[in-house]
Design a protein around this nucleic acid. Structure first.
Length: 187
DNA sequence: GCCAACGTTGGC
DNA sequence: GCCAACGTTGGC
């Protein structure tokens, strides 16, 4: 199973917006590498939703692919902000996938948290700062899920200790990561 | 195919 | 809102 991270600017389209709508066509992506990643996505693939360009930057929760790649019709709509005249209905250039809400994390896994997760240190999120659709390794994905259940690194140490403990037990021995010691965004 | 100019992304 | 990083475009 593949895992992905998709960026969105929460002022444009947030995880809460996705929760309200249930599903969303992830259109507007105008980068070949991101498009190719979307073409590789399969129904059911988990997707971390990352809030970029925001006051609180980080992974807000989990979604999944609910429909595989299909042509992105906004590309041949002159009125659309992501209009690209090179794309036509006859020869589509850009694709979109549909993403379905799964859950919001108990807390945001902040960018700072991510920077402190050893299993995440080689992520494309750092190496390819402009890429808006990013494939994740199993270890990277697991590390973020794990961190999401831990108390925040600062401040709310008392938050959900029982939950964190439960996760520790369930995750023990797996060697997964440890906790921290673009309408839509322009994706 | 190089690379300077340009436009955009996204952290701060 | 600034601006560095970086992906894309287009002249040569």
């Amino acid at each position: 199973m593949r895992h992905w991270l998709m960026k969105t600017e929460p002022s444009v389209f947030s995880l809460d917006d996705l929760r309200r709508k249930g599903r969303e066509g992830w259109d507007g992506v105008r980068n070949y590498e991101a498009r190719n990643s979307m073409r590789a996505m399969r129904v059911g693939d988990p997707v971390l939703i990352y809030h970029s360009n925001a006051e609180t930057i980080g992974v807000a929760g989990l979604a999944e692919i609910s429909r595989e790649a299909q042509p992105d019709a906004t590309a041949w709509d002159p009125a659309n902000e992501h209009f690209d005249p090179r794309s036509t209905p006859e020869r589509p250039l850009w694709d979109q996938v549909e993403v379905a809400f799964v859950r919001a994390f108990p807390r945001l896994v902040t960018r700072e948290d991510l920077q402190g997760i050893p299993a995440f240190s080689a992520s494309l999120l750092w190496k390819r700062s402009r890429l808006s659709v990013i494939p994740l390794t199993d270890a990277e994905f697991a590390a973020v899920l794990f961190a999401a259940e831990l108390p925040a690194a600062d401040g709310d140490q008392r938050a959900r200790p029982e939950r964190a403990a439960a996760v520790r037990i369930r995750s023990s021995g797996q060697g997964s990561g440890r906790g921290p010691s673009p309408k839509r965004a322009s994706r």
